[in-house]
Write a protein that binds this DNA or RNA. Sequence first.
DNA 1: ACTCGATTTGACAACCATTCTCATCTTGCT
DNA 2: AGCAAGATGAGAATGGTTGTCAAATCGAGT
Lengths: 145, 145
Amino acid sequence: MTNTEPKTEPTTEPRTTPVAGGRPTKQRLAVANVLSTFGDFRSAQEIHSLLTDSGEKVGLATVYRTLQLLADSGEVDVLRTEDGEAAYRRCSDSHHHHLVCRSCGATVEVEGPTVERWTKAIAAEHGYRDISHTLEIFGTCAACS
Amino acid sequence: MTNTEPKTEPTTEPRTTPVAGGRPTKQRLAVANVLSTFGDFRSAQEIHSLLTDSGEKVGLATVYRTLQLLADSGEVDVLRTEDGEAAYRRCSDSHHHHLVCRSCGATVEVEGPTVERWTKAIAAEHGYRDISHTLEIFGTCAACS
DNA sequence: ACTCGATTTGACAACCATTCTCATCTTGCT
DNA sequence: AGCAAGATGAGAATGGTTGTCAAATCGAGT
Ligand SMILES: [Zn+2]
Ligand SMILES: [Zn+2]
Ligand SMILES: [Zn+2]
Ligand SMILES: [Zn+2]
């Protein structure tokens, strides 16, 4: 039947393609899109809910796979919440941390070069590379005092 | 036998292990003891294996409960590895943070007034009180580079 | 030392986020 | 169109952690 060439001619072959993020499928675009809608960290399950609620039909496994892809390619930041869940956010956002009221949950995004410099300096001082860090500040906000 | 120990005597024995909050049971002492034999972070499951291998019969649930107790009372440090597992380690008395190799787990305790001042300043600036914070630094150590 | 109520334990079930499986679409390309 | 590699999704499997609850243990009071 189909008597094509036994093998595809390796003349101009796919190996040169840097599949950083793979194919731009609908599902992946949807995940990337929802990520760019929010500036803060969201869990994979949360992202999946947002997608299904908005009518997009994307499987949970695909959400996880896409987030891992994006994380591996450096397009999103990933961190672990205190109870062990992974949270993702688009990394084009400026790096920042959170000041959270432990009573009402009111959150303030904070940032500053001070702590960033400090962590880098500390890490370099001990010979560590590829530094990342997690920092959360908890307190009682003025309204809850 | 020696049943006439003077009650007024403060501490006569080598080590009365004061376990956090609750009763100093055999199981809790065993967990606390195994923690003091290691300087780096160990998972709960790992600690449980160490205990059972050494003959101590302690249930896994009890290990988890004890570690939570110790963590809540500040006697051990707890952090989340980058793959989401909780890791525990005996804690030194002073407030500090950790620089952890994400490859081999090598941990350096770091501290400094810089980040402490920064968090307090940020919090005060936004009217928050009773400030606490969590900060972990991850990287690849020199040996793993 | 004995009793009794409160605490703690442990075997196992339940949870839940994440990953795996694999049959079935899609996409990219000719 | 036609094909093969890549991607998807429904559900099962995984694995760490927590919940359940009867039984064991502790310890203060007697
Ligand atoms: Zn508040
Ligand atoms: Zn930072
Ligand atoms: Zn290392
Ligand atoms: Zn600190």
